[in-house]
Design a protein around this nucleic acid. Structure first.
Ligand SMILES: [Zn+2]
Ligand SMILES: [Zn+2]
Ligand SMILES: [Zn+2]
Ligand SMILES: [Zn+2]
Lengths: 163, 163
DNA sequence: TCATGTAATGTTATAGTATTACATTACGTT
DNA sequence: AACGTAATGTAATACTATAACATTACATGA
């Protein structure tokens, strides 16, 4: 990981706090336990404003004085994924904060293979179509998001400039 | 990896040979170089009849007397992916033979998170819809297949039996 | 023939990602 | 106080993938 490109600035502190407050509310409603550690990991993910690797999170935790090892961060990420607060991006081995955690959704995430930036969309028709393809084969979809890789507009422009 | 469940029997030798012959023809047409090593890896992937991990392939190569190390198999897989003969499944870190290598296609692959089995479908409408979602954001898709995880009918049945 | 360039493969080492297994702590219930 | 459970701490290890450099095979042309 440790990609240096940064096209989209990290969210303002106020926005971060709003998202965290929303997570607090969600977990309270559901009776799930957003502990200080889990909340701290979520905050780190949100502050990044882009997909981040588990070991980057681990480094940040350590910087913040939390004596941590891999299971610490993987457990927190697992919880956050179950709660729909974080998505895992398998093609990049990264994790990102969900853009719309307040309602259950199954979304599409575009990730740039050059800079690692990601964009999460609401795609009302997509999973319906996927279910239609799956049904005749008896397959039951469990993924709550779909990652697809490509090249973002910034990196496309960079390619053109290089020629 | 090393999942023991085997619901779908491996392809008959005749089918394997047909697929290999097709790969030979494709690469000859394109002027690409399907070397003995690459062809051997492809044969291993085809014979599995299901997604297989890189280190499993490595073990098989060694069994067959080919002195191999990780780069050997990763390089072969990279070539085979470029030629559209093999797909990588990021959520499982596995590789599978393309079901329709004879024509360029961008397909949908269902993978079972329980047993690892996979099913590749022709999905004429899917990538068009994905492009429609991507276009307004200037995003350019490069993936040639889309993996989505769920539970296959056999494993669903196993769950019901367990209750 | 023989130098040279290129593609492919061999080889060693290391980087990066994730899980297992077991110990400890915190806290509510009986 | 004893117990049970959820959460976290800790050490070790497994699994996946790439970097870097050496060697081989072979085509091409001097
Ligand atoms: Zn989301
Ligand atoms: Zn980009
Ligand atoms: Zn295919
Ligand atoms: Zn299954």
């Amino acid at each position: 990981m440790m990609s240096s490109t940064l096209r989209i600035k990290p969210p303002a502190p106020q926005v971060v706090n709003e998202q965290l407050a929303q997570a607090d509310a969600l977990c309270r409603e559901r009776g799930s336990n957003l502990t200080p550690l889990r909340r701290q990991v979520l905050e780190l993910v949100i502050r990044q404003g882009r997909p981040v690797g588990a070991y980057d999170l681990l480094d940040s935790l350590r910087t913040q004085g939390r004596g941590s090892s891999p299971p610490t961060v993987y457990r927190a990420l697992e919880f956050l994924q179950q709660e729909g607060l974080v998505h895992r991006l398998p093609a990049q081995n990264t994790y990102m904060a969900c853009s719309h955690p307040h309602h259950h959704h199954r979304g599409l995430i575009f990730t740039c293979s050059r800079c690692g930036q990601a964009l999460e969309l609401e795609t009302p028709d997509l999973f319906g179509m996927l279910e239609d393809y799956a049904r005749p084969h008896g397959f039951e979809i469990s993924d709550d998001s779909l990652e697809i890789s490509g090249v973002c507009p910034f990196c496309q422009e960079a390619s053109r400039d290089a020629r």
